[in-house]
Amino acid sequence: MFKRENAVQGARWIAICFAVLFAAACAQTKPDGLAGNVKPGTGQDFVVNVGDRVFFEEDQSVINAQAQATLANQAKWLGRYSQYTITVEGHADERGTRQYNIALGARRAQAARDYLVSQGVNASRIKTISYGKERPVAVCNDNSCWSQNRRAVTVLNNATN
């Protein structure tokens, strides 16, 4: 019984990694993967070694402990590489109505932005935008996908690889 649960969880983890592709969570599970070849201070460095996104519970915009850790790392990285301005993109899953989800995505982007500011990122470097439910990254039909779509993504403006 215990073994089977592990197998199921493992399968789901692979599914998430597959869908997120190069997102931080996947790369970090492979210690000698992409991370070793990434040039510090690049967009790829930010995505792979810091993590560009945080996730939210259904119909929530609370920055949970895991998201706090990710955003704190983002703030630290942005402190080191001060040439970047950023856009925080807020997103919602497909299990809501369109107009509300636009506002919910904006609320999530704002929550992530406020946390970055609290960690020392100058507010003038941050722009926010909401895509509501219009730009999912995962397209399967259960919560393992919807939970990946409920996100705020920090995008570096004028990033190079």
Binding site: S61, Q99, I102, A103, A106, R107, Q110, A111, I129, S130
Partner: peptide, 25 residues
């Protein structure tokens, strides 16, 4: 800021919509 969810008034002379202001609309 972002405006969304527009709709005309019955006389067609106005539009009502939401304006996003931080976390509020």
């Amino acid at each position: 800021g972002m405006t969304f969810a527009p709709r005309f008034s019955p006389d067609g002379q106005s539009v009502v919509m939401s304006l996003q202001q931080g976390g509020n609309a």
